[in-house]
Amino acid sequence: MTEAIKRKKPFRKKYKNEIKAFLLIGLPLLWWGVFFVFALVRAIYFSFTDLTFDVNANLSFSLESYRRIFAFGTEYFDSLFWRSLGISLIWTGVMLVANNFMGMLVAWMLTTIKSHRARRMILGFLFWPSLISAVASAHIISMVFSSGSSGLFNRIVMLFGGYPQDWLGNPNTALIALMVVPFLLGFSGRMIIYYAAMLGVPETYYEAAKFDTSSKVRPFFHITLPLIKNAIVLNLVLSLIEGVRILAPMQLVDGVADETMSVVLYIFNLAFYPQALGSEGLVDGRRLNQFGRASAYAMIVFVVILVLTLIQFKLTGKEAENVSAG
């Protein structure tokens, strides 16, 4: 009986919700399929070809790009890729440690302030630098470390009787000069997430702890830290992704030495701006956009990010599963 009714149910009624859903999201879903899924598949495909600017040329299967990465000791080997990846990873490591430490410290300090008004004022002043664009941040770095007597750091050096130097142009100091400002002041984004998490810890926990200890520091390690674990994981993952994808300071700071090239900047230059590269930008003696090679390198970066994220999740335990990849 019921079977019969069910079978008689017209298609439109049976799949009512499906029709409704796909009328509403069909087009965006298609759009997403083109610009995310299709693009990803194509990126993998391109990475196995030697595609240059001419897309309509006949593409043939080629492992050349991957050989450049892994064939150590042969003529193909691209040491510049590994060096630039190393620079990105140094940047990531330094910023991850410094910004998270500073962010957590400052967030905790903020929670000790009693007056809400003062708290919000300071929070505002500490937070807004994270809204400044990469272009403006790069200009700030070049203002601080520019050569000659116009740079802020050189003026401080001169106050103490030193001589102005070209910090950014010198390959030995360039990377450090780039890192100083983000190292000291780049904690805003991390701080705000820690702060929000710390506010979420119930006040009663601390009151209970007052009976056990008079210390101010011990509750932080035994109550706060375990309870903001999600925020820590989130911040570490965000630091990692942001760090490996770093590009703007290396590209935009005025007069910075080529030795600071990060891996994403290298990929960008290979694909879109071969003029910035020396002999690596040449294909058979011509400057060409090397899309295939850039895709292969980007794949490696993708894998590096994925592996490092998974390691972090593994190290920080199961709670990590609740965290969005933001």
């Binding site: 990803l40 391109f46 895709s295 980007a298 970066v301 993708f302």
Partner: peptide, 15 residues
């Protein structure tokens, strides 16, 4: 969400 934009920039540019 896991795929960084750098991977997609070449194919999307070509598209």
């Amino acid at each position: 969400l896991m795929v960084p934009g750098e991977v997609l920039m070449v194919p999307n540019f070509i598209l």
